[in-house]
Design a protein around this nucleic acid. Structure first.
Lengths: 243, 243
DNA sequence: CAGTGGTCTAGACCACAGC
DNA sequence: CTGTGGTCTAGACCACTGG
């Protein structure tokens, strides 16, 4: 069953085309999460290319963390483990350096009009409609982080149908479940605010805070989220790896 | 001219062995920095393997940022551009978000006895001898960052022969030039200190500071440096990418 | 044992740089 | 035009998994 991908008439190399096709299959959940893909042999026949080309395409997806190869067993669907993404993206720790796993609560959820500044962050036209979320993260009931989140309305409109209580502690699994949008990487910028006041964060009257701006990127490098997180400076501990 | 690498009797795949050999050549500066390597064809003959294996080895070094391939021209020696590593590792920016390029000055340089705590950070035995450096970074003459640096004595002993004035604004180029040690990645941990006093940093009487602990890793993942950097919290702006 | 991914080869053809 | 790296193939053999 040869598919002759070349009909796409793209200038992209075949392994890129196949990567794209495999991505679509993954988005459609054609193979069970945690289960295996067809063998490289089968995939090669299916797409009408040689095994080497399949391997190259699959390796790209392994790099992106979507697949996992195990010698002798197969290639597994490894939808991003959001447990580790919690550590990946939410890097506050307590003073002893241990990871903190706070609960999340959506305080406000609204469709808002395009905002030039935010759309600039998102790399979109000035008046693109947006979704705005205010969210708190709590530990032992008290707010330790206050967040403002902006999403492009388009792929995320489904979120507006949800009640705040339907949001989970983690947003990124929700993005993929409700909107099919997968966050793969992010860029963060940290600054210090000597005097900060917040609706949710109990920081006294203008105490010191840390502000984290995050841009989160999808599978093709497009910006999917702009987020500002605020926390008390004294509680702050952030860890990162520079490769 | 076949070299028959198999004499290494390693269980490593050949492309890993070749990667290692190429790394050694790079450390010896066998090819001019900024110049090209022999073509893949030549390398394949030299090492007695097929082109595909050479390509796999070279691709690893490209990933590590040591080489750069340009179609139609060749494979170039791209010793890590420390200009960008300055941005990579020294991520303070001014309030407008522009990169700051400060000067570096070594204030103290000494051989010190093994310290259990520091050696633990470096992943070494408790009483391994160390090198201790105090260093400032200045902008327009005033200190903006104060640093304490610990290095294992062993690969870095050559630094002790230098006068503080012989140190450049950047240490990592010195590490490779004087000691043949290449820093490839790092892990940083940031915390906030509400009251901090420093010998060099003009921060008033216990003003707010940001402390950055860094572990820097060599080409094989070994820890080569432990560093603590201190700066005024108000001047702080840190940017990072999470992949 | 059969089936999987991992390594390696030899060779073809393409795209690009530079003379 | 030649020489470079980029893509792709078909097939061999190895290493590992699991029945």
């Amino acid at each position: 069953m040869e598919l002759h991908i070349s009909q796409m008439a793209e200038k992209l190399p075949r392994y890129e085309q196949i990567r794209h096709l495999l991505q679509q299959e993954l988005a459609k959940q054609s193979w069970p999460v945690g289960g295996t893909l067809p063998s490289e042999q089968i995939l090669a026949e299916t797409y009408g290319v040689s095994i080497g080309t399949i391997r190259k395409a699959v390796d790209l997806l392994v790099r992106d963390g979507l697949l996992e190869k195990v010698q002798g067993k197969g290639t597994f669907v490894k939808y991003p483990d959001f447990t580790s993404s919690l550590t990946r993206f939410f890097r506050h720790r307590n003073k002893a350096g241990q990871a903190i796993i706070p609960t999340g609560r959506v305080e406000k959820l609204a469709a808002v009009d395009g905002n030039g500044e935010i759309n600039a962050f998102l790399g979109r036209a000035e008046h693109e409609p947006l979704i705005y979320i205010e969210r708190t993260r709590r530990l032992d009931g008290s707010v330790i982080v206050s967040e403002k989140i902006w999403l492009p309305r388009e792929p995320f409109a489904a979120l507006l149908e949800l009640k705040p209580a339907q949001f989970d502690d983690l947003l990124y699994p929700l993005y993929i479940k409700q909107c099919g949008q997968l966050i793969l990487s992010a860029r963060e910028q940290l600054t210090f605010l000597p005097r900060y006041t917040d609706d949710y964060l109990p920081i006294g009257d203008g105490g010191a805070a840390v502000k984290i701006r995050r841009l989160a990127y999808g599978i093709n490098g497009e910006i999917l989220e702009y987020r500002e997180s605020y926390g008390k400076a004294v509680d702050f501990c952030y860890e990162t790896v520079i490769a």
